[in-house]
């Protein structure tokens, strides 16, 4: 597949926003006296990430003015379900922010209910986003539970790293828990992503040129794809990058999404400077952009069998 940057930004931005909100709700029991405005700032930031992701998604659409129609087919389409889950998540985040901004509207129990509802919708949103890709059965690199697991774990890890940086900036009391969980989620992400890389290395493709044209001969060569100029089929499904670049990028992703951020989070324990945590978040986010690019680039669409040679 040819990676679309609008979708790369959509999935990484909302992933961070979702993870950050989960971190905020998780951090609530540790809030102590509540003198810091950490919760409110982090909630608003989570909203900003979700909104930025939503904004990015519009660039993927040919007809963004009709985007509202995408809520109609929730019975069958995971994309439609995501389009419904994202605004619900954003509304819950806004309510959660409002309740923190005007204290006393609901008691602690009420906050927890809203917060947990938000966390549930965030997890549902991760599931919808993952299923958009995992449900396309002939994109075999995507059609695996690892897709959903990686979307969830990587988004959560990114959110917790950001929560760590934020808590360093605003309220040191909760830093330890966030830092520990940020490291834990990042390491879990490393394991799950390595598993998915390994799985995708060993894929045995079910489609071949033989099944594509229905001729049972060992040697079939395409001589013409029917047109000399490009078409949608050659633009949308080929990334035109070398295998070497892809395998190098995979190493880069492992280093900057997992190794460097974890090293920086640990380093913060010895050298407590706030900048280190912000840098950890930014480096990891850039790495996640590359990770998402790889996710698309590595997917091999069976239609490519029909577009091998210009001729």
């Amino acid at each position: 597949m040819n990676p679309a940057f609008s979708v790369i930004f959509l999935t990484t931005l909302i992933g961070t926003g979702q993870g950050l909100f989960i971190a905020v709700v998780f951090g609530q029991p540790y809030s102590g006296s509540g003198t810091s405005n950490y919760g409110l700032v982090a909630t608003i930031l989570a909203f900003a990430f979700l909104a930025a992701g939503l904004f990015a998604s519009f660039f993927h659409l040919g007809r963004p003015e009709r985007a509202w129609r995408a809520v109609t087919e929730w019975r069958t389409s995971w994309l439609s379900r995501e389009v419904i889950a994202l605004p619900i998540a954003m509304i819950l985040v806004l309510i959660y922010a409002l309740l923190q901004w005007i204290p006393g509207l609901v008691d602690g129990k009420g906050m927890n209910i809203i917060g947990l509802a938000g966390v549930f919708v965030m997890l549902a949103l991760f599931f919808c986003t993952g299923m958009i890709y995992a449900c396309v059965k002939f994109l075999q690199e995507w059609a695996t539970p690892w897709t959903i697991i990686n979307y969830t774990v990587l988004g959560t890890a990114s959110g917790f790293v950001l929560a760590t940086a934020l808590s360093a900036a605003l309220d040191v009391a909760r830093l330890g828990e966030f830092k520990g969980l940020a490291i834990a989620f990042t390491l879990i992400g490393l394991i799950t992503r390595l598993f998915s890389f390994q799985r995708n290395n060993r894929i045995k493709y079910r489609s071949s040129i033989q099944t594509a044209v229905g001729i049972k001969h060992r040697k079939i060569t395409q001589r013409s794809m029917g047109h000399t100029g490009g078409s949608f089929n050659t633009r949308a499904f080929f990334h035109h990058c070398s295998h070497k670049l892809i395998s190098n990028l995979r190493l880069v992703v492992i280093v900057i999404v997992f190794v460097i951020p974890v090293a920086m989070l640990i380093l913060y324990g010895y050298l407590p400077r706030e900048e280190i945590l912000w840098a950890a978040f930014i480096v990891q986010y850039i790495g996640l952009l590359a990770e998402r690019w790889l996710f698309f680039a590595q997917a091999n669409h069976p239609q490519n069998l029909y577009y091998q040679t210009v001729g």
Partner: peptide, 10 residues
């Protein structure tokens, strides 16, 4: 609609 061409065999 596209017409593609394949060579079968050697």
């Amino acid at each position: 609609n596209r017409v593609q061409t394949f060579e079968v065999g050697e």
